[in-house]
Amino acid sequence: MEFQESGWDIKHLVKLMVSSAVYRQSSAPRKDLEDRDPYNRLLARQTRFRLEAEFVRDNALAVSGLLSPKIGGRSVFPYQPDGYWDNCNTFTGPLIYTTDQGEDQYRRGLYTYWKRSFLHPSMLAFDAPTREECTAVRVNSNTPLQALTLLNDPTYVEAARVFALRIWREGGAEVSDRIAWAYRQTLSRAPNDQESLVLANLYAKHRSEFAADPHAAESFDQIGQAALPADIAPAELAAWTSIARVILNLHETITRS
């Protein structure tokens, strides 16, 4: 009725749903509901699920500040492992993949070129459908390939590096301030003391390791197309990139809860 009376206004309906008390509940399970509604049929709490493939990437780019807000245009070709299309089981044989430069590298995931049945591997790892048939509900897997993608795909390493620079510039003066700022940017909450300590210890370890291994710091700092700033010491950027990588890899970061 609401939908009808609003003049079939879809935006109004979506707004109504997402601003409802039911939708805005916490997703944390409650002991008292375990027996009464174990499958959450009655929606006594919010459901939680991993972000969809495109949003996993969009989220990392948005957190880092790299994401392009541009709407529309041709499909784009983000970083993809060399030779990946050589393994595409087509009739015609190897295809050529030309990586985009500049803004097109950072477009939203929905603009990534969609090779039917042979998707971009990081989209595939996060269960984007192959578009061979209608997909009503995407599967939601949890595999080692997802971990490898978030850890090693240059898209995510570059996002971490650019995010690291923001943490260093905008996050405050102290290590703990910066960690707290990074958490707020990514997870919309402050870290607790234990979480902060895990990251502070990692920062200290990698700061000294990268200082002692400048070649490693420099090559790490150059992954991706984004410009390398001159005002930050390579080891400092590298150490914060480690912190940013950890945060971008967290289950909480890729989960809507």
Partner: peptide, 9 residues
């Protein structure tokens, strides 16, 4: 396996 290599450095 794709993305099995660690980032440089």
């Amino acid at each position: 396996v794709l993305y099995v290599g660690r980032p440089a450095g």
